[in-house]
């Protein structure tokens, strides 16, 4: 399933948004609102340095650093990540190809420098936590709104912005979350907060948008925080050195580059 550029850890907001006015008078359904979030325009290419700070209940911190490149090839979007720190994972690389075709699973490979080998891995483990953070692989992807039933709970102000509060329940009963609640900014169609509930219906964690920057006409959310209440553990994701539409060569997304590294 395709992961849009605006996702993974970022939420990209198109500045030139004209549809808000057009739809302002119409009463929207929950599905329509979530589709607006899903279909927001996004850049074709992006590279950035990603820093994840994992903070335990005692306050101790662990830092993971990654350099990532993403490019949309039309029917397939390719992403490659080079792990820079900590030292024991340095030179590991990970590549993901995701497809427009909703029936086609992602292709994923990992290069482990100790084994000097690129291994194909299954994209089925979307419930796994990414590098020990509070984000699962699924959290970092772009979930198609058609996979959930959506209900508008209420309108609420967050940081002075009018937000739709949308409850989404999965159609697949085996999905890792029993429901999510998202605060979507009215007329801008991006989320500022999202609560996750586990398979037993218990509150699990909250994703909070912390900082956004306007780069080349797109609002890029550069800092987000995921707080896991059940584990009392927190992850802050921060993007730096962001470059958009710089002409990343196709050969960046190959086995050759996975092995060579940066």
């Amino acid at each position: 399933m395709k992961m849009k550029l605006r996702n993974f850890i970022i939420l990209i907001i198109a500045v030139t948004f004209v549809s808000g006015g057009l739809f302002a008078q119409k009463k929207l359904t929950g599905l329509e609102i979530m589709k607006k979030v899903y279909n927001r325009p996004s850049p074709k290419e992006m590279e950035a340095k990603l820093t994840m700070t994992l903070i335990s209940s005692s306050g101790s911190k662990r830092v993971r650093t990654i350099k990532q490149f993403i490019k949309d090839f039309g029917k397939v979007e390719k992403k490659i990540m080079f792990f820079l720190a900590p030292a024991d994972v340095r030179n590991t690389s990970f590549m993901n190809w995701s497809y427009d075709d909703p029936n086609k699973d992602d292709d994923q490979w990992i290069y482990l420098p100790a084994l000097k080998k690129v291994k194909r891995i299954s994209s089925d483990s979307k419930g796994d936590y990414f590098m020990g953070s509070d984000f699962t692989y699924d959290d970092l992807g772009d979930r198609n709104p058609e996979e959930d039933n959506h209900k508008i709970l209420r309108m609420e102000k967050v940081n002075g912005l009018d937000c739709y509060v949308i409850e989404s329940t999965p159609k697949d009963e085996d999905y890792m979350y029993s429901k999510t609640i998202t605060w979507v900014v009215k007329d801008r169609w991006y989320g500022v907060k999202k609560d996750f509930y586990d398979e037993d219906g218990e509150y699990l964690k909250t994703l909070t948008l912390k900082k956004a920057e306007n780069i080349k006409g797109y609002w890029i959310i550069v800092t987000v925080e995921m707080f896991n209440k059940q584990k009392n553990h927190k992850t802050i994701m921060h993007l730096s050195d962001i470059k958009i539409d710089t002409g990343i060569p196709s050969r960046m997304f190959t086995e050759r580059m996975m092995k060579r590294g940066l």
Partner: peptide, 8 residues
């Protein structure tokens, strides 16, 4: 299997 907070 990886366990504990931060998969440590």
């Amino acid at each position: 299997k990886d366990l504990l907070s931060g998969d440590t």
